Amino acid sequence: KSSGQLMAEWGLDDVDYLFSEEDYHTLTNYKAFSQFLRPLIAKKNPKIPMSKMMTVLGAKWREFSANNP
């Protein structure tokens, strides 16, 4: 499932962030990516359980990696 599908299924607000060329150069591993995106997700979904946060971050990382030029 996509991150958007997961968040909709769980009734969470998705984070629409348009990644720049620079993001693809600086966010080169999962740790850097999650440190960048986790606060954005948490801000829109302050009560998100950690298990769902990790699942969403994993899905967003897969999508980000697939779109990386």
Rank of each mutant, 00 (worst) to 15 (best):
A59E: 07
L57N: 04
F36K: 14
V15A: 08
E21I: 07
E21Y: 06
A66L: 15
L57I: 14
R62H: 12
Y17Q: 02
N45K: 01
N68V: 02
F64I: 02
Y24P: 00
F19E: 03
F19D: 03
L18W: 09
M53V: 08
L27C: 06
A8I: 15
K1V: 05
D16S: 05
A59R: 06
K43T: 15
E22R: 12
T28D: 11
G58D: 10
T28Y: 07
E9Y: 12
M54I: 11
G58R: 15
E21Q: 09
L18D: 15
S3F: 10
N45W: 02
S2N: 11
K47E: 14
D23L: 02
Y30I: 08
K31C: 09
T28S: 12
A42L: 15
D13E: 15
S51R: 12
T26S: 08
S20P: 02
K31M: 09
A66R: 11
F19Y: 13
F19T: 04
E22K: 13
L57A: 05
Y24N: 09
E9F: 02
L27V: 05
L57D: 01
Y30R: 05
E21P: 11
S2C: 04
F19G: 03
D16N: 05
S3N: 08
T28R: 08
S3R: 02
G11K: 10
K1R: 03
E9N: 09
D16R: 02
M7E: 02
S3G: 04
E9P: 03
D14S: 02
D13P: 05
A32Y: 08
L12N: 05
M54V: 14
L57S: 00
D23T: 03
Q5T: 13
S3E: 03
F33S: 02
A42Y: 04
D16T: 06
K43A: 10
Y30L: 09
D23E: 11
V56A: 15
E22N: 08
D14E: 05
W10V: 06
H25M: 15
D13C: 15
E22V: 07
F33C: 00
D14M: 00
S2E: 04
S2K: 07
K31R: 12
A32K: 14
G11I: 00
Q35L: 12
I48L: 13
P39H: 01
Q35A: 11
A59S: 14
N45P: 00
K31L: 10
G4H: 06
L12D: 02
N45E: 02
G11V: 03
D16A: 05
F33N: 00
H25P: 04
L18T: 10
S3T: 09
A32H: 07
W10A: 08
F33T: 00
Y24S: 05
A42R: 07
T28E: 07
D23G: 01
E9V: 07
L6N: 04
G4M: 14
N67G: 08
A8M: 14
Y24Q: 08
A32T: 14
L6W: 07
L27E: 01
